[in-house]
């Protein structure tokens, strides 16, 4: 891919996202959640989306606001039900949104597999539970595993801490969470950061997401 695009606005950063896209959205609760990119996506107007994220929105802002606008057809997540997930809860109970619940580690590993070119993998998580029903299993060295398939994104929206002008990313504390994995699994990876620094200012030893994965960066 070509060099990263440093965007002047979040609108520019989310331009061209198509209806029907699968969008990976980083964050665990609000830590690492790319709220300004989601707001821009709401303005941009893409609809019939599949959203992959750990949660299904909190309160009335960010992902919850995207859901409330009716833009999301399906949510793939590990933990939709929270004390402040009333937007998702209402849509789900009204049958207006599809839900695929995935164990949190499988969610991460399925995206890791997508980003690493793995066709599928055998995983011990969920064996014997409703979340493994209908899935292929295999016994390896006396233990049962479930066959899990990658989750790829057309787009990944992630929140990082700093970027340089090449798109190398560093994160901050537990806001790292799904960001580095989603950055590998999205075809177009869009990062919002608090600061864009000159190339060479980030210590190469501490870069978590190398620029090869990143397509657009915007400072918010």
């Amino acid at each position: 891919m070509s060099a990263v695009k440093i965007c002047d606005s979040t609108a520019e950063a989310v331009a061209g996202i198509e209806d029907g896209s699968t969008i990976l959205i980083g964050g665990f609760g609000l830590a690492g959640m790319p709220v300004q990119l989601i707001d821009a996506l709401i303005e941009q107007g893409a609809t019939d989306l599949t959203v992959v994220s750990n949660n299904a929105g909190n309160g009335d802002t960010g992902l919850a606001a995207l859901l409330a606008k009716g833009r999301v057809r399906k949510v793939i997540c590990s933990f939709p039900r929270q004390s402040d997930s009333w937007v998702f809860d209402g849509l789900y109970r009204a049958g207006k949104i599809e839900l695929e619940v995935v164990p949190q580690g499988n969610l991460a590993e399925r995206m890791r597999a997508a980003g690493a070119g793995i066709g599928a993998f055998y995983c011990p998580t969920a064996v014997g539970t409703p979340l493994a029903e209908g899935k292929e299993t295999r016994e390896i060295d006396g233990r049962t595993y479930v066959l899990e398939f990658p989750i790829k994104g057309d787009v990944a929206l992630i929140g990082a801490y700093r970027s340089d002008r090449m798109g190398n990313l560093v994160y901050r504390k537990t806001a790292r969470n799904f960001g580095p994995v989603m950055a590998t699994a999205g075809r177009t990876v869009i990062a919002q950061v608090t600061e864009i620094v000159d190339t060479g200012r980030l210590d190469p030893e501490v870069i978590v997401t190398p620029s090869i994965y990143v397509d657009r960066v915007v400072a918010v």
Binding site: R81, L99, Q104, G105
Partner: peptide
């Protein structure tokens, strides 16, 4: 029937 399923990391921890 009306419960919204939410598993988080419980299944991964249980086997891991």
């Amino acid at each position: 029937p009306d419960a919204i399923p939410a598993v988080g990391g419980a299944m991964d921890l249980a086997v891991g």
